[in-house]
Amino acid sequence: MTNLQVGGDQPAGQHLLEVRDLFVEFHTRDGVAKVINGVSYHLDAGETLAVLGESGSGKSVTAQAIMGILDMPPAKIPKGQIFYNGDDLLKMAENRRRDIRGKDISMIFQDALSALNPVFSVGWQISETLRTRTEMSKDAAMKRAIELMDLVKIPGAKTRVKDYPHQFSGGMRQRVMIAMSLAMDPKVLIADEPTTALDVTVQAQIMDLLADLRRDLNMGMILITHDLGVVADVADRIAVMYAGRIIEHADVHSIYKQPAHPYTRGLLDSIPRLDHKGTELATIKGLPPNLMRLPTGCKYHPRCPYVQKPICVDEEPRSLNLGNGRTSACHFAKEMLDGNLG
């Protein structure tokens, strides 16, 4: 297992995908928003990494930086590396990078209704990359589109291939998007909150589908979500983000058993549970930090129930290696882990 706080001097290429010490900021008229502040994570073939965090924690921006679809400007990447098969995507020429985008690494988005183009049929959109990026003929691409729609279990794919996105239900639309992302047989699939816009029963079906596809096609999957309940069944590892940093990283079992960061514990405590019926649901107090004016020290200290002055206020905690690939960016990570805090 690799230590997550790797420095820039470490050799690349041990992982399928590796984000290393990434910084992203948005330059706006009101100032500079520091959205990503040194994110590092990696992904291997055949595994699922869940990236967890609330709105504005930078989980989507990291994904968009990997895809290379950030609008620059206003976004700027002052520092960091993103290795795909050992090559730094950020140093690549745009045409080489575009070659990887959508083919080796592809992405599905949250709201399939707005993420699909309303004026083209779903078959047209699924087959578009095949028609334009491979030698495949129009007919063959359309046939492949039907196969892909079958693969994501859209009933009656053959008759529905000419339908438009608005003619599908929310869950089917998301399946269309998944089919589209699979067209070029990607090695890495980034799913950015794929079930947020769906109702609960459909959510479960889509998550099952993604898990099956990930296994059958042996892809690496990055699952971006703010829903801890969603990740428990499908993810191998979890990276928890807060204010543009990974504040805790561990395999799923360890993190559910004993979180090593107060924020993760806050998240876990705020999941509604049947055996807590009748008691008030725990919440994390306060609001996510303003990215234009981040707090000093630990970015979580204004909301942390265990905050210890002065260290938490003055000193930004380093990412501590807790063994077994587990890290936590808390001054009291060891105490958290041993259950001696709170």
Binding site: M67, I69, R98, D99, I100, R101, G102, K103, S106, M107, F109, D111, S114, A115, L116, N117, P118, E128, T129, T132, R133, M177, M180, M184
Partner: peptide
């Protein structure tokens, strides 16, 4: 600014397309 533009770009389509 639409979402589908972001999707199109994520498909690796050239800007002119």
């Amino acid at each position: 600014r639409s979402d589908y533009v972001r999707t199109a770009r994520s498909k690796g389509l050239p800007t002119r397309r």
